[in-house]
Amino acid sequence: MVDREKLYQAILTGDAKSARALTEEALKESVDPKELLDKTLIPAMDEVGRLFETNEYFVPELLISARAMKSALELIKPLLAEKGAEPAGRVAIGTVKGDLHDIGKNLVAAMLEGGGFEVVDLGVDVSPEAFVTAAKDKGASIIALSALLTTTMPAMKKVVAALEEAGIRERVKVMIGGAPITQRYADEIGADGYSDNASGAVALARSLAAKVPAAA
């Protein structure tokens, strides 16, 4: 019987090799992949997020854990798909038009993946139309926008407007973040949520995913 605590620790310490091996072992023992994900892997990543939020972990440690999580997820995802289980949500993430900063966006993307989300990374300098296309063609139910410059913040509003114009605003949730962004700005442009850090973004995405209309 695989030691779940060892798997939990492998994620926590970013030991990708052990995380994969222990996941493989658990699956061979017919452990339910959804149960393994929900009861061991996601709680481990939540603890990583907590350690980061309390300033015990730095980003490199967080990323190493996210990679260990990814190596375990690579084994679990196909099995979940076979059973018709959906990921925690599908997020299209990008830095808005005119802005080239991607460090924060990459960090949030890694944490979302680690949190069980399927992430479509659109890159930097992303046009409103590209976000709309991701929502339409790739089935993203959450759009995550990043901006570092005050001068590119207005591009976030344009994305919200483009989603409205495309007639899909009701079925898509918009979350925003970046150094100059505030909750007030999120409210002002009609975004559904704001987070000032990467692990907070995962919690936000979970709460938004729960609010996405079932038809989406």
Binding site: G98, T150, T151, M153, P154, A155, P180
Partner: peptide, 8 residues
């Protein structure tokens, strides 16, 4: 010095 948030 720079501008406040404004689209160029």
């Amino acid at each position: 010095f720079t501008l406040q948030a404004i689209e160029i």
